[in-house]
């Protein structure tokens, strides 16, 4: 799975597409880790083209959110979460751990 990352002045942007399941979640995890391990903790995840997220994928986001929010040093923000994904996220109460935006510019600008 292709995961692209871009570094902005005040935050980093991660983008991928398609399915994030247990076979592809490690690629997403690697993208988050490379940003967090280099000391940056404000991350926008653009989910415009993501059409499936299994629980393994959510745990990548939850783990990243735990690391980023520690010491109030940052946050993971989600952009354009498709309705089916959001419904299943809300069903297990995980939606409440993330701010969600409808466009990347607003999300990047929120930092």
């Amino acid at each position: 799975m292709e995961v692209t990352t871009s570094q902005y002045k005040r935050c980093d942007l991660i983008k991928t597409s398609g399915r994030v399941d247990s076979s592809t979640a490690p690629d997403l995890e690697e993208a988050f880790s490379s940003i967090i391990d280099s000391g940056r903790h404000k991350v926008v995840f653009d989910m415009t083209d993501v059409n499936f997220m299994s629980s393994k994928a959510w745990w990548v986001l939850i783990d990243a959110q735990k690391k980023c929010k520690r010491y109030n040093r940052g946050e993971v923000i989600l952009v354009k979460v498709q309705e089916n994904i959001r419904d299943s996220l809300d069903l297990v109460g995980m939606g409440s751990y993330f701010q969600m935006f409808d466009d990347v510019t607003a999300a990047v600008g929120s930092f």
């Binding site: 629980s55 745990w59 959110q65 735990k66 929010k69 299943s88 297990v92 109460g93 995980m94």
Partner: peptide
Amino acid sequence: LNVPLEELQPRGVGVFLMQQM
């Protein structure tokens, strides 16, 4: 579920999801 972020653990979520879906 619905616990503070730091206390959230993955155990059991997969089966819970299957039951909910």
